Computed example of a mutant assay.
Amino acid sequence: MFQRLRSLDAAFRILRTFTLCVIAGSLALGAFALYLSHRLITESRQRVYVLAAGQALEAYAAGQKEQLAIETRDHVKTFHQHFFTLDPDEKLIQANLRQAFYLADGSAKQAYDNLKESGYYAGVVAGNISQRIEVDSISVNTTEHPYRFRCVATQRLIRSSHTVRRRLVTQGRLRSVGRSEHNPHGFLIERWTTLENRDIRP
């Protein structure tokens, strides 16, 4: 009788251990399945398909921090291209500057007024000069708002006889504003100043 009870007790212990192992394994498998499904959902959310010319192209969504760095740099680049791209045509100059003024505060208008007062734009038109800018680097500190930036670029003043290259360094800060048709990135350049603007010797 006692022998049978002992064997029943041993069998019960074995069955209990087996049941606990099955439950633990099921929980581990369920947790792993949840982890995998969460990962797949996260990856699928970062995938976007864009239809272009009848073809579906795969695009990847960037993180908010990466997107911020890209947008701030592009805003600064776009502003400088509008402000410093000049041709010997007053209407074209005004059109470019109007676009630039949407992207910056009164500090850009002040710089324009100073250049206009010194006869810079009149000289561009009278001398048939074209001015182009190539942005070499833009550094933006996105850890603290408003975001401080520094832009290094090369200007080319193209005349019929020769081309002058100038090194341009500017700085300022970016404040977040509402997005609009004229300001798609939703930033406004403030306290914009030119630190350096000198000829580059060939």
Score class of each variant (00 low, 15 high):
Tyr147Pro: 01
Arg150His: 07
Arg175His: 12
Gln171Lys: 02
Arg148Ser: 10
Arg148Pro: 04
Thr170Tyr: 05
Leu157Ala: 07
Gln155Pro: 08
Arg167Ser: 09
Ala153Asp: 00
Arg167Thr: 07
Arg166Glu: 03
Gly172Asn: 08
His162Arg: 13
Gly172Glu: 06
Val177Lys: 08
Cys151Thr: 03
Thr163Met: 00
Arg148Asp: 08
Leu174Glu: 07
His162Ser: 12
Cys151Gln: 02
Arg167Pro: 01
Arg156Thr: 05
Arg166His: 02
Ser161Thr: 14
Ala153Phe: 04
Val169Tyr: 00
Leu174Asp: 00
Ile158Pro: 06
Arg159Trp: 09
Leu168Asp: 02
Leu174Val: 05
Gly172Ala: 06
Arg150Asn: 07
Ser160Gly: 12
Ile158Asp: 14
Arg148Leu: 04
Arg165Asp: 06
Ala153Val: 06
Arg159Leu: 15
Val164Phe: 07
Val152Arg: 05
Ile158Asn: 12
His162Trp: 11
Thr170Pro: 06
Arg165Gln: 13
Arg159Gly: 08
Arg167Gln: 05
Arg166Ile: 07
Gln171Cys: 04
Tyr147Ala: 06
Thr163Val: 14
Arg156Val: 06
Arg159Ile: 01
Cys151Pro: 06
Arg173Gly: 10
Ser176Asn: 12
Val164Ser: 10
Thr163Gly: 03
Val169Ala: 01
Thr154Glu: 11
Gln171Phe: 13
Ser161Asn: 12
Ser161Trp: 06
Arg156Ala: 10
Leu157Cys: 02
Gln171His: 14
Arg150Met: 11
Leu157Ser: 13
Leu168Gly: 01
Leu168Cys: 05
Ser160Pro: 09
Tyr147Leu: 07
Val164Arg: 09
Val177Ile: 11
Leu168Val: 02
Arg156Gln: 08
Arg156Phe: 08
Arg150Gln: 09
Arg148Val: 07
Ile158Lys: 15
Gln155Phe: 10
Val152Phe: 00
Gly172Asp: 01
Cys151Ser: 07
Leu157Val: 13
Leu174Arg: 01
Arg159Met: 10
Val152Asp: 02
Gln171Pro: 01
